[in-house]
């Protein structure tokens, strides 16, 4: 098997809120082109990890590195860390230290897009508008930072048409094209989840972070979601990081699973390996480690 390149490397990540340790010395890697899942029981710190990666929280400790292009740039990581820079770019690729970037820079520069556990759409705006806002920075440049666009100069019209085409593509892909001119808040729940993914994809990410995308979906919608995620990975050069509760989804589509419990990593590996890991079973079933053999036996029986 060919060596897979790394896209995201999390090292010794810790996040404390007052006395509460939400994430405790977490390290893991996500590979390029993979669907990596982070699972764990309620309150395991999954969303906190996401918020650290996407810049919404500043981690108490640790380093989060994101790679564009060739991951040989990771050899310079200590160098960059020492210089205090936020990121470095070479001909082969670029390296971003996400814990040093502000939230909107994580999206703009490092091109990490995300969705939210409790869907955050621009409810009063149409689906099309939602997807255009996702292309804000590109359109902002095309409009000459508003001045050109205001005077009708420059190629803003062309850029906007391109942006609309891109939006149309993703609306079509998520099966929402016929509702393009409706308010986002008027969509049913499952469609809102898909729209959020479409919106994230419109921002041209290299890494797509999905926070419980299957939550609240029925079986059919869950299937559709799986297909959508697999096709995103296949057709677009995007790696996916995913938090999920629904083990069915996780086991079916992930290439690699990281299991958290009480903020610590308790397992990390392929779905098959994780499934049979006694620590994981213990965490999910809430039993002591010594008893897990019995539980595993009972389960397999």
């Amino acid at each position: 098997m060919a060596r897979q390149e790394t896209i995201l490397r999390v090292e010794h990540l810790s996040m404390k809120f007052g006395g509460l340790v939400a994430v405790d010395d977490l390290s893991f890697e996500a590979k390029k082109g993979d669907i990596t899942a982070i699972i764990g029981p309620n309150g395991a710190g999954k969303t906190t990890v996401f918020n650290c990666i996407t810049g919404f929280y500043k981690p108490t400790e640790g380093r989060i590195a994101l790679v564009h292009g060739d991951d040989s740039i990771l050899t310079r990581i200590d160098n960059v860390t020492a210089t205090g820079k936020q990121w470095v770019r070479t001909r082969q690729g670029a390296l971003f230290l996400l814990e040093r970037l502000q939230d909107f820079k994580v999206s703009e520069l490092a091109r990490v897009a995300r969705t939210f556990q409790n869907i955050r759409l621009f409810g009063g705006m149409t689906l099309l508008e939602n997807l255009l806002i996702a292309q804000h920075n590109k359109l902002m440049r095309a409009s000459g930072y508003t001045f050109g666009g205001l005077l009708g100069l420059g190629g803003y019209g062309k850029a906007e048409r391109a942006a609309i085409d891109k939006a149309r593509y993703w609306l079509d892909k998520t099966g929402l094209l016929d509702r393009a001119d409706d308010a986002a808040a008027s969509l049913p729940y499952g469609a809102q989840r898909r729209l959020e993914i479409a919106r994230a994809m419109c921002s041209d990410p290299v890494l797509l972070c999905l926070d419980e995308p299957a939550a609240g979906l029925n079986a059919r919608e869950g299937e559709e979601l799986n297909e959508l995620l697999l096709s995103i990975r296949k057709e677009h050069d995007v790696s996916i990081l995913l938090i999920e509760h629904d083990m069915g989804v996780v086991m079916q589509i992930s290439d690699r699973i990281v299991v958290l419990d009480y903020g610590r990593k308790i397992a990390d590996g392929s779905p098959a390996a994780v499934r049979s890991d006694p620590k994981v079973i213990a965490a999910y079933l809430g039993v002591e480690e010594e008893e897990t053999d019995e539980v595993a036996k009972e389960l397999s029986a």
Partner: peptide, 25 residues
């Protein structure tokens, strides 16, 4: 109808979503 105007309205709708999409609040 320009990006800045849409960003204003997006800000009114959801500031956190704006930040996740690379918009400087």
């Amino acid at each position: 109808r320009l990006p800045i105007g849409r960003a204003w309205e997006a800000l009114r709708e959801d500031e956190i979503a704006c930040r996740s999409l690379g918009i400087s609040v």
